[in-house]
């Protein structure tokens, strides 16, 4: 069937390598990124399985062994109620990952949807989305979270308590998840705008690339072009942003818990442990050092990984 003489030089015939595998090779050569990746994997593993592996329960108190210094039986020592700090840090990792993943997931879904629609269709849709984004970003994060917590938390909890007293229905007894729900909600609310902006900018730049015109010239529908041409090309920077965003969300969760508007005791969070530790750090520095070090490690690991992904995924775009 081939009717045309083919000019195939050796250089043109090379084995196919996938873009992602390329990126993986580049990532592996980056020492800091590998460090970040390893730490993130260990932390994720800890979050998933840690609570089953720790020697103590994070809640069980042992009033005979309060404020112990780190030792073999208590790796990070014990706190003022005699609870094992290592077990609490491990459980705090679970809290941090749970909050970070759920919050980032919600924020990414909102941000990507709004950003992609705004960038692709432009016009009034774009103006509304941009207005929403600017407005959300102009509200100070902390203020918003404090307001949400202050205005919603106690009414909901006290309503639930009264329901429980009235009905004795166990559904109303546990109020911990109200904590989580409010934290998820309020943090997602302040976290989506950067994703929307990023995706919008990506889409705007991708929309004017020749391969989009080429796809339109093929008669493909807007939906296919958006899903198969625009979004996948915006994915690299988004992955980078998500990796960094997970780290940010963990720090944010700790910050809010530290300030008492996030996850509340007795549920362990690095933030509320730091807050407790801070009060006694001159006497028992391990109570501050342990959660603070893990938080710092997590934050650094995610940012190294994000930078590494950025470098690994970008050469293709620059070429």
């Amino acid at each position: 069937m081939s009717v045309v003489p083919m000019p195939g030089t050796a250089a043109e015939i090379e084995p196919p390598v996938s873009l992602w595998r390329d990126a993986w090779h580049r990532l592996r050569r980056n020492k800091l990124a590998v460090f970040g990746l390893v730490v993130v994997v260990i932390l994720a593993f800890t979050a998933l399985f840690g609570p089953y592996l720790t020697p103590y329960d994070f809640l069980s108190q042992d009033l005979n062994s309060r404020n112990l210094a780190p030792s073999l039986s208590h790796l990070f020592g014990t706190d003022d109620l005699g609870r094992d700090v290592f077990s609490r840090v491990v459980y705090g990792t679970r809290t941090a990952f749970l909050v970070a993943i759920v919050v980032t997931f919600i924020a990414v879904v909102i941000g990507v949807t709004l950003g992609a629609l705004a960038g692709f269709f432009g016009g009034w849709l774009d103006r509304i989305v941009m207005w929403l984004t600017d407005m959300t970003m102009s509200i100070p994060n902390l203020l918003l979270v404090v307001v949400i917590n202050a205005s919603l938390k106690s009414p909901i909890t006290s309503w639930m308590e009264s329901r429980y007293l009235a009905t004795l229905n166990p559904v109303y007894r546990e109020t911990i998840w109200v904590d989580f729900l409010l934290v998820f909600g309020s943090m997602a609310l302040i976290s989506w705008p950067p994703y929307a902006r990023l995706v919008r900018a990506q889409v705007l730049s991708i929309r004017s690339r020749p391969y989009i015109t080429a796809a339109q010239a093929l008669g493909l529908t807007n939906r296919i072009i958006l899903m198969r041409y625009v979004v996948p090309n915006a994915l690299g920077p988004l992955i980078v942003a998500v990796s960094a965003g997970l780290g940010t969300a963990m720090v944010l969760e700790s910050a809010f818990s530290f300030l008492g508007v996030g996850v509340n005791p007795p549920t362990p969070s690095w933030g509320n442990m730091i807050s407790d530790g801070l009060r006694v750090w001159q006497h028992y520095p391990h109570l501050l050092a342990a959660p603070a070090a893990v938080l710092g490690l997590a934050s650094v690991a995610f940012s190294f990984l994000g930078d590494g992904l950025n470098d690994a995924l970008n050469p293709r775009g620059a070429k």
Binding site: L19, Y211, G219, R228, Y229
Partner: peptide, 21 residues
């Protein structure tokens, strides 16, 4: 008509193909 009855070949082969497909 686009793509079905009328085919296009563009100026720049480097940028007219979807790089991730």
């Amino acid at each position: 008509v686009r793509g079905g009855d009328v085919g296009f070949i563009f100026q720049d082969p480097m940028t007219s193909l979807n790089p991730v497909m």
